Amino acid sequence: QNEKLANELKSLLDELNVNELATGSLNTYYKRTIKISGQKAMYALKSKDFKKMSEAKYQLQKIYNEIDEA
């Protein structure tokens, strides 16, 4: 289960640069939040902690959705 979550989180991290570029014309909230979420996700992957990875995955998905809707 950890392996599956780690792969999903890696996949979301692969999209980080594209989504970060998409924040160029948006409010600074999005820029700041996506950077923080990305850092948390990288830390969670290194720690291999299921709870941290779950939270990081949720945060990344949430900010990606917010950027898409903005």
Rank of each mutant, 00 (worst) to 15 (best):
Q1L: 13
Q1K: 09
Q1Y: 10
N2E: 11
N2T: 14
N2L: 15
N2V: 15
N2F: 15
N2Q: 13
N2P: 06
E3Q: 09
E3D: 09
E3M: 10
E3S: 07
K4S: 08
K4M: 10
K4T: 08
K4R: 11
L5M: 06
A6I: 11
A6Y: 15
A6N: 02
A6P: 02
A6V: 10
N7K: 13
N7R: 14
N7D: 10
N7I: 11
E8Y: 05
E8Q: 07
E8C: 15
E8H: 03
L9M: 01
L9E: 00
L9Q: 00
L9A: 00
L9P: 01
K10Q: 11
K10W: 06
K10N: 04
K10T: 05
K10L: 09
S11Y: 07
S11G: 08
S11C: 13
S11H: 10
L12H: 00
L12D: 00
L12M: 06
L12P: 00
L13Y: 03
L13D: 00
L13K: 00
L13S: 00
D14G: 08
D14H: 07
D14E: 11
D14K: 11
E15R: 14
E15P: 02
E15F: 13
E15Q: 15
E15D: 09
E15A: 12
E15S: 11
E15T: 07
L16W: 08
L16S: 01
L16E: 00
N17Y: 14
N17Q: 13
N17G: 12
V18F: 12
V18N: 11
V18L: 13
V18T: 10
N19W: 15
N19L: 15
E20N: 08
E20C: 14
L21P: 04
L21T: 06
L21C: 10
L21I: 10
L21H: 07
L21V: 08
L21F: 07
L21Y: 07
A22M: 14
A22I: 11
T23H: 06
T23M: 06
T23W: 10
G24T: 12
G24Y: 11
G24S: 13
G24Q: 15
S25C: 14
S25M: 11
S25Q: 10
S25A: 11
L26K: 04
L26N: 04
N27D: 12
N27I: 05
N27H: 12
N27Q: 08
T28P: 14
T28W: 14
Y29S: 04
Y29C: 11
Y30K: 03
Y30C: 08
Y30D: 02
Y30A: 02
Y30L: 09
K31I: 08
K31Y: 09
R32Q: 10
R32W: 12
R32S: 06
R32K: 11
T33G: 06
T33D: 03
I34D: 00
I34M: 05
I34Q: 00
I34E: 01
K35H: 07
K35Y: 11
K35L: 11
K35W: 12
K35Q: 10
K35A: 09
K35P: 01
I36W: 12
I36K: 07
I36R: 09
I36A: 09
I36S: 07
I36M: 09
S37V: 15
S37D: 03
S37M: 15
G38H: 10
G38I: 15
G38C: 14
Q39P: 01
Q39G: 04
Q39V: 09
Q39D: 07
K40S: 05
K40Q: 09
K40P: 00
K40A: 09
K40V: 07
A41G: 03
A41Q: 00
A41P: 00
A41C: 02
M42W: 12
M42V: 09
M42F: 09
M42L: 13
M42H: 08
Y43E: 15
Y43H: 13
Y43A: 15
Y43I: 14
A44S: 03
A44N: 00
L45N: 00
L45F: 06
K46G: 05
K46V: 10
K46N: 08
K46T: 07
S47I: 10
S47A: 07
S47E: 06
K48W: 06
K48M: 14
K48C: 10
K48I: 03
K48E: 04
D49E: 05
D49R: 02
D49Y: 03
D49P: 01
D49H: 03
D49C: 05
F50C: 06
F50Q: 06
F50E: 06
K51R: 09
K51I: 10
K51M: 10
K51A: 11
K51L: 10
K51H: 09
K51W: 10
K52N: 05
K52D: 05
K52T: 07
K52H: 05
K52Q: 10
K52C: 10
M53Y: 03
S54G: 05
S54V: 13
S54W: 11
S54E: 13
S54Q: 13
S54I: 12
E55M: 08
E55Q: 09
A56K: 01
A56R: 00
K57F: 13
K57Q: 04
K57I: 15
Y58M: 11
Y58T: 09
Y58H: 10
Y58F: 11
Q59E: 12
Q59H: 07
Q59N: 08
Q59M: 14
L60N: 00
L60P: 01
L60R: 00
L60V: 01
L60M: 03
Q61E: 11
Q61Y: 05
Q61N: 05
Q61V: 07
K62E: 05
K62S: 05
I63C: 03
I63A: 03
I63P: 00
Y64N: 03
Y64L: 14
N65G: 07
E66I: 07
E66K: 06
E66V: 04
I67C: 03
I67L: 05
I67D: 01
I67F: 03
D68A: 15
D68Q: 15
D68R: 15
D68H: 15
D68T: 14
D68M: 15
E69H: 12
A70P: 03
A70S: 05
A70R: 08
A70V: 07
A70Q: 07
